[in-house]
Design a protein around this nucleic acid. Structure first.
Lengths: 200, 200, 200, 200
DNA sequence: CATGAATGAGCTTTCATTCAT
DNA sequence: CATGAATGAAAGCTCATTCAT
């Protein structure tokens, strides 16, 4: 994959929606060419094939998530609050980029098979959150996790599915409302707090 | 789609793995024919096409989940315990059927576009869990949800991702360990219980 | 390559001319399909690709040559006369099948790269002729060759080029005239027979 | 086709091998660019296309043959000896330039279709040899040919195939040995000389 | 003068699907 | 009822070629 001229990269985003709607396999290269305004042969000049185009789009999304998550993770304050920040960050990126985000999920299987994506996802999310969970155990704002990695994975799953629901349904709720709902589930769980000192 | 001879149905499961590994679009009908030992033309005699084969496989899985979930939901005891049972039920089916389960996720996008599947998923999971959440609010074992439907969705996401991790990684942990981890996250959350009277 | 129905094989000969005229690379699969009346996809059902079609056509030709050459080689009489018979046999096949014959030459390079063809050629021509040369040395009708294999190759070259000239030019001379010219060159050489007891 | 800088011409010979190995059609312009180290666009600056590059390479070869053949033809001595010289000359050029030589044969079909090549070949070989045959008939060192042109063609074929065998096999015999074998076949034929006054 | 970047025009190949047996 | 054989319809990808710099 050749170095992409920015202008071309920009045009490509126009195709993300298409892929999200139809799935990559139902999206012909011609469609991508037409939707993006980039000639088919030019796409092949820069990419090895269809998959690489999708990978590029998704990597871009993950990079964005990674960036915002990183900011949230290394903010000031107790880990629990920073975790809520992480949730907000991921949801924010997802709601701002619904198309690639739907594409990511629609082709989760394929994404699973793109090794560099798995790595990118891990770096973007799992590792920082895992670190955050450990810090929370130390500052006392989070309970000590038995298996931080798998907990990080579950957190990602929860946030992702929540974000997706919105992306698919067509975002009718406020981002803050969603983020709060997710954060509350993750932090407080579904069981009632007996002596409600913690509460919301 | 004609009524399937059982023997044929059985053979078909052999193809689930294939679809799970490659995604439906990368799986040619010839592949399915070869993997299952059912001649291509015979597949067409019973199914309208590839999609219908996948749908058959997935519906089977969802039916299984629905059944086990239904049992867990209508068991005895407080809603919180029954919710833990639901988690165990879903994870159980997933771990026992890793291939169709991976196929379901790998082709989530398509699944989204197969209306009867969405309906089946809703019936199998969302509705019973939503009902359970309401019951929990009444018997006091669960806090009152603000938006039970979206909470049901998140629960599904969390469990699913946890199950998938195992299905993809190749199940090395005990099913109970996973189920407990998930149930604990969902019920108690990540924050420490201030006055730990509740605990697990 | 699947077993070919005879009817299909027959139709294919219609394409030989085309390939001979344009060379394989300038002959599109569509052309072959149209010229032979066999649908493109059917061609692919039986052959792996364009090359295999050419290989089939050429092998057919070589089989024909091999057959006639074999007859000539194992005829009655001194080796020298049988060698003349071989020349006539090869030229005969070539003149009767000008199209595949031109194709063979036009794509000699490719033919060189089709291993099964090299083997077929060797079996069809080199080996029988080499054997014939040895027999001639014994019955005294041919001089003892220093390197029978390379002499067999040269003989093939001479006959082939002669045959090609005719195939390309469009056969204006009698087959016998050509065969006699070639046989004479091969047997008597260009030098005058000093004491012309042998002569033609 | 613009006047070629020598340095560029030199680089191009590097591509002859490639073309000889794969045939022109399987050789992409990119391959030629890479093999020769000349940028693709630069090739187009000097040549009109692929064919012209091949033509350039082959013409070069034919010019070399023509030169050496001309020298041999117009040497001193009887025509029969000069004919042997011609054989040596052609074989010499072929063995010294195996790559373009294989390319010429591999693409004989195309060469046939490149009119200027046919003309060059005729001028380089057929005409001088035809003339030589006539001279031999006059000085008594060669028998009178019935059809000198077609005999010249056969001579070319014999020598060419012999040269090719070596070029393809990877030249293991001494050039002189080959030349002598060919010359002997052409001059004396395969039949034994009854009263061997002539011999080798 | 030489060339990196870009692309129009096609072609091979693949597959889902049909249907006679 | 089941299936081997055949094919129509598409699509991914390649490559020769151009042109602005």
């Amino acid at each position: 994959m050749r170095e992409l001229p920015v202008q071309l990269a920009t045009k490509l985003y126009g195709a993300a929606e298409l892929i999200a709607d139809q799935g990559l396999d139902n999206t012909k290269i011609d469609d991508i060419a037409e939707a993006s305004g980039v000639p088919k042969a030019t796409l092949y000049y820069y990419f090895t094939g269809k998959e690489e185009i999708l990978a590029f789009l998704l990597k871009d999304l993950l990079t964005a998530i990674a960036g915002d998550v990183a900011v949230a993770v290394s903010a000031e304050g107790p880990a629990s609050e920073r975790l809520a920040g992480v949730v907000r960050a991921q949801l924010g990126v997802m709601l701002r980029n619904p198309a690639p985000c739907r594409a990511l999920v629609g082709d989760l299987g394929r994404a699973t098979r793109l090794p560099e994506l798995a790595a990118a996802l891990s770096a973007a999310f799992y590792e920082p959150v895992e670190k955050l969970l450990r810090e929370g155990a130390e500052d006392g704002s989070l309970r000590r996790a038995e298996d931080p990695m798998s907990e990080a994975v579950m957190i990602f799953g929860t946030v992702t599915i929540a974000g997706l629901m919105e992306a698919i349904m067509g975002a009718h709720r406020e981002m803050d409302a969603i983020a709060n709902g997710v954060a509350r589930l993750l932090l407080d769980g579904l069981a009632p707090r007996t002596l409600d000192a913690t509460g919301a």
